[in-house]
Nucleic acid binder design. Structure first.
Length: 571
DNA sequence: GCCGTTTTCGGCCCGACTGTTTTCAGTCG
């Protein structure tokens, strides 16, 4: 797909323009275009070939030409010129907390540092405080952020940020001044990674709350400590922002801090057209102090003629328009999920016994589970030989007699070998209730090779689903170069489901891909890929991804009852 | 650079905090 590359180019251009002190609205236009291109439901090349580029929001006459230039030549002159003109170190400097284009340029013009290391030397030699507007405090902040950047460069996984935010909320709830409290931001939208944690409190007496917050045990550094807004860095290196508002503003503040920015801008623009103004305190008539709405999110959406929109959808990817027409999807919920198709036991690389895994699944209110230990060639995971899988099938049959309101199904996470053949022959596969086929080797194959390989696996009538279809590991490994459009088409034709793997480092398919699959009618499965009892909890992240992909229960195969499922998977 | 039911030019979301200034620019979300 070209989408990610072009979006990145636009984002780069925005940074270069910012450093040039260019028109801020022009900069925003590039960022807006980048965001919309990233979220496109298909390859932008296909849209270009239909001559529909300017139908993409944020793409006008100029960006149309730039996109076409990239599609035909593989590069963009405008980008290249800016790249050549912009010193690398300036881009690096923008990553420093509190350092914007003005300050970065000021320092650069005077001292011409070549790297962040050079900048650090300047700070230590107290050179910067000779510049206008920079004194001791600014130097100190730069130094601290430089040290911080050395340690933490990545965004934080949802699975790390969510428990931390819940912990902070638990702590703050102990304060008598705290009324309502909730986390907001990208965390509430359940993005796979987050940059920081936003927490919102209502109170009539914020001062003691702020004091307690910046003094929490896990706080490493206080970035800001104000009357209504404070920011800290936690011991784990995650920034946490706390805002306190009055109860009358809770909904408005929640809406504002949940974002996304693009969603908020859309709402504010809508409000403005109606002669209204939205800020974090409420919805107002333009030029008036009287609050029309603000206590709850629902009342603000309603005042704009909209249905309430789930946070997971708030990306300005069509949710506002759908809401205006009262056509928002009825998103899948945890309670809709009845089974798990992807689990491991200590027969292969899992930690716990089959019975223990069943117990854990049952505790989470699931009514069936497929045991999918690895297949024979995956030696590192103690994959099951032909003999052992036959023994496991027999064991499962025996165990099942003991369960009352739970069904354990026999399955396999069968490896898709380098040539697309499967790691068990059909004679084994046909004895299994559910087969999930996955790629675990040969990630470096060419796009054509790996796509062909997966397509071949999908054509096997015993394969019910493809596990973690792109193979990415967040922060560790890029996805392999599979052509997803072909995979989606084949999934539909061969009646093969695609997985949304709930492991927090996988979330594969991701939200954008899952939505593309959903849009073309591909069935999805939300699996935990549990290798231990506690990993069933990860279902929360898989469901969040499905919700971000606009999925309803009918799009998800494991929302079916066992009976419905068995009818459905008879290929 | 985009956009249009006040439209093809003149707008473009809105407010808090910091650090350095004595009234505010720069930065952030």
């Amino acid at each position: 797909m070209n989408n990610a590359s072009i979006a990145q180019l636009c984002e780069d251009i925005a940074v270069f323009l910012e450093l040039k002190d260019d028109n801020p609205f022009r900069i925003r236009a590039y960022l807006n275009a980048a965001r919309n291109i990233r979220g496109l439901p298909e390859d932008i090349a296909a849209i270009a070939s239909r001559g529909e580029l300017t139908k993409i929001p944020g793409i006008g006459a100029d960006l149309k030409l730039k996109v076409e230039e990239f599609l035909s030549s593989g590069s963009l002159k405008f980008h290249k010129v800016l790249l050549d003109k912009t010193p690398r170190v300036l881009v690096e400097m923008l990553k420093i907390q509190g350092m914007g284009p003005k300050t970065a340029n000021l320092i650069y013009k005077k001292y011409r540092p070549k790297s962040l290391a050079d900048l650090e030397k300047l700070v230590l030699a107290h050179k910067l405080r000779k510049l206008p507007g920079i004194r001791e405090k600014t130097e100190q902040n730069i130094l601290e952020t430089l040290n911080f950047l050395k340690q933490h460069r990545e965004r934080t996984l949802l699975s790390k940020a969510l428990p931390l935010s819940r912990q902070v909320i638990l702590e703050l709830k102990k304060l008598p001044q705290v009324d309502q409290i909730a986390y907001a931001g990208s965390l509430r939208r359940m993005q796979e990674t987050v940059r920081d944690i936003d927490i919102l409190v209502t109170s009539k007496n914020p001062t003691p709350i702020m004091k307690a917050f910046v003094g929490l045990g896990g706080v490493q550094k206080v970035l800001a400590h104000g009357e209504t807004k404070s920011s800290v860095i936690s011991r784990e290196g995650i920034q946490i922002d706390l805002r306190v508002v009055s109860p009358d503003s809770f909904g408005a503040a929640l809406l504002y801090f949940t974002g996304s920015k693009a969603h908020n801008i859309k709402l504010r623009t809508m409000a403005k057209k109606k002669g209204l103004k939205i800020n974090e305190y409420g919805l107002f008539k333009e030029g008036s102090e009287r609050r029309i709405a603000g206590k709850t999110e629902e009342e603000i959406y309603r005042a704009l003629g909209l249905d309430w929109i789930s946070p997971e959808l708030r990306e300005d990817y069509g949710e506002v328009e759908a809401s205006a027409k009262h056509r928002l999807p009825c998103l899948v919920e945890r309670a809709d999920i009845r089974g798990d198709f992807h689990t491991h036991s200590n027969w292969s690389d899992g930690l716990h016994k089959i019975e223990e895994m069943v117990e854990a699944a049952r505790k989470r209110k699931l009514s069936y589970m497929v045991l999918t230990d690895h297949s024979q060639s995956l030696k590192v995971a103690n994959g099951l030989s032909r003999k052992r899988i036959l023994a496991q099938i027999a064991t499962i049959k025996k165990l099942n007699r003991k369960f009352k309101d739970f069904t354990l199904l026999a399955g396999s996470e069968v490896d898709i070998l380098q040539d697309g053949s499967l790691d068990f022959d059909d004679d084994i596969l046909k004895r299994l209730d559910f087969v999930i086929a996955s790629v675990h080797t040969g990630f470096k194959q060419s796009k054509a090779q790996i796509t062909k390989r997966i397509l071949r696996a999908m054509e096997n009538k015993h394969v019910h689903a493809i596990g973690h279809p792109t193979g990415r590991l967040l922060g560790e490994r890029e996805a392999y170069e599979v052509d997803l459009e072909q995979i989606f088409k084949a999934a539909e034709e061969t009646n093969t489901a695609l997985e949304i793997n709930s492991q927090p480092t996988r979330l594969d398919l991701n939200d954008v891909h899952a939505r593309q699959a959903r849009d073309v009618g591909v069935a999805l499965v939300v699996d935990t890929d549990s290798h231990a009892m506690d990993q069933f909890e990860n279902l929360e992240y898989g469901i969040a991804t499905a919700r971000r992909a606009w999925c309803e229960a009918k799009n998800i195969l494991n929302c079916l009852t066992l009976n419905e499922l068995q009818k459905r998977i008879a290929k």
